[in-house]
């Protein structure tokens, strides 16, 4: 069964017809040619497909496209302003926070979404005081980023890159 939906991807509204079984990830990659989000596991276990949906980080392989009709999606590609990289992306370059690069767009989106969550006061499993403003030390960053796997082992460089962007 097909359904007509529209997604705003990196600022551009796109209309498309999708199989109702199509995930947001496959809609982006196979229907719209937006291949910045990656498919690493298709089960929400690796985080490579992470984008920001209406500002919040979402694993698109676990989201059905028909359930996201009208959504505003920002991928790592859209985070950059033309050739001008987002500060988080610049930090990933400066700290060599990647090797093969396959998990990287997801790490970048997740990091930006995570900073917003912390800013909004969301606690994590390692937060001691659940009511105080969140202080994003290394342990907090690692905990909050643990849904984004990196097989090349760039974790220590990724954390250094993210720390640069903590206000």
């Amino acid at each position: 069964m097909e359904a007509e939906i529209a997604l705003t991807v990196d600022g551009t509204r796109r209309s498309l017809s999708v199989d109702t079984r199509t995930t947001v990830l496959d809609a982006l990659r196979e229907h719209l040619g937006a291949t910045s989000p990656k498919k690493g596991c298709d089960h929400g276990q690796c985080g490579a497909c992470t984008v920001l949906v209406d500002g919040r980080r979402v694993t698109t392989c676990l989201s059905l496209a028909v359930a996201h009709d009208g959504a505003e999606i920002t991928t790592a590609e859209g985070m950059a302003d033309g050739r001008e990289l987002h500060p988080m992306q610049r930090s990933f370059l400066d700290h060599d926070g990647f090797q093969c690069g396959y998990c990287t767009p997801g790490q970048v989106c997740s990091a930006v979404g995570m900073l917003a969550e912390a800013e909004a006061g969301w606690p994590s499993a390692v937060t001691d005081d659940l009511t105080a403003p969140v202080e994003l030390d290394e342990a907090e960053i690692r905990e909050r980023m643990s849904g984004n796997l990196c097989r090349c082992g760039a974790y220590s460089n990724i954390v250094a890159a993210i720390r640069e962007n903590v206000r």
């Binding site: 990659r29 040619g33 291949t35 910045s36 989000p37 990656k38 498919k39 991928t75 790592a76 590609e77 985070m79 950059a80 050739r83 990289l85 992306q89 990933f92 370059l93 400066d94 060599d96 990647f98 690069g101 396959y102 990287t104 767009p105 970048v108």
Partner: peptide, 21 residues
Amino acid sequence: RERLDGPAKVTGTAPYAYEHP
């Protein structure tokens, strides 16, 4: 040296095999 493929990797625009149009 910063990676030559770095900007393409951090934006997700470096094409991997399955992404070739």
